Amino acid sequence: MYYPDHDPRFPVGSGPGQAPAAAPAPAPTWGPASARWTSPLGGRFGAFAIAKIVALLVGYFAALVLALMVVSFFRDGFSATALIILVLLGSSAVMGIGMWAFVVSPLGGRWDLIGWRPPARSMWNLLWQIPAVIVTALIVQILVIAPFASEEPAQGSIEDMLVGTSLPVVAIGVILICGVVPVWEELFFRGVVFGVIRTRLGRWGGAALAGCVFAFVHLVAVGFPYLAVIGVCLCIMAEWYRSVVPGMILHSVNNALVAVTLLTAAGAG
């Protein structure tokens, strides 16, 4: 006997006279890039996540200071460059662990929710955006700092820091500064901090405040204008691209230029 609901032309449960079967929910993906990047980090969840990550980082620095105090009892002196490498390497590891434990894991392992996703626009735009951002930051830095600059700039600090440091150690430091630090800084400052602030202040207010936070935590008072402009522009880029990946590239290029400038100055001195 013929049963219409068993007609092979129709899926099971969706034959003539029956309601069509519900379409299966799409599986989570790493995008799509064209979708609007909306932050899930508002409210208490985002605030507590940032607090936990910062507490974890403070704990690392406290442990590092304690370890250095112990080492100082057994040997005199410690390479400043080696200390910087410990700070950079340890901070990168701690921030990665913190963001996974307190942000990404509770969100189901979705790194795309904090901006690690394919850009929604062509990254060829970086060819003009990178020089435009860096030149703008330099102009602001000059306009703000020039009236207060000393006529006799301090010299010797970079040379003193590099004394007794081998070339491989310097190379490791440069790799960390240019290749590793920009990744976690963009995920944290643009993906997490900017994501949380943006839910309260909107994209422009969030970019301004998150950019200033980015500049402040670097603890370089003389470079605050430059860092603030870079931070704000990176937030705007994250919003424009719906991704932090292009910002990682700009961040890496900027760090590389700073590193080359400092090393060149040290060599000339």
Rank of each mutant, 00 (worst) to 15 (best):
V65I: 15
G179K: 00
F78D: 03
Q141H: 13
A80G: 12
P119T: 12
I230E: 02
P20H: 02
I50F: 01
P119H: 04
L263E: 05
P119E: 01
G231W: 11
F214I: 10
A63R: 11
F48Y: 11
G156A: 10
I97H: 07
V58N: 00
S34V: 13
W124F: 06
I97M: 11
V245R: 02
F148C: 06
L41I: 06
M161T: 12
L167S: 10
A137N: 04
W37I: 05
L263N: 02
F45E: 04
A149F: 11
A221K: 08
G231R: 05
L107C: 12
G108K: 06
S79W: 01
M237N: 04
S79G: 06
A49T: 06
I236W: 10
V183F: 15
I53L: 05
G13R: 09
S72V: 03
P40G: 06
V180Y: 10
C235N: 11
I158E: 09
P182C: 03
V170S: 09
P24F: 04
E239D: 15
W240R: 13
H251E: 08
V232A: 04
V229E: 10
S34R: 07
Y241R: 05
T264M: 13
V245H: 00
S92Y: 13
S34L: 10
I175K: 02
F48A: 14
V133E: 01
F194S: 12
P119R: 00
I84T: 07
L113P: 00
M95Y: 11
W100T: 15
G173N: 06
S14M: 04
L187P: 01
H6L: 14
F73Q: 15
E151N: 14
Y241N: 00
G267V: 11
V253D: 01
L162G: 01
G115S: 13
S91W: 12
W100F: 13
P40R: 04
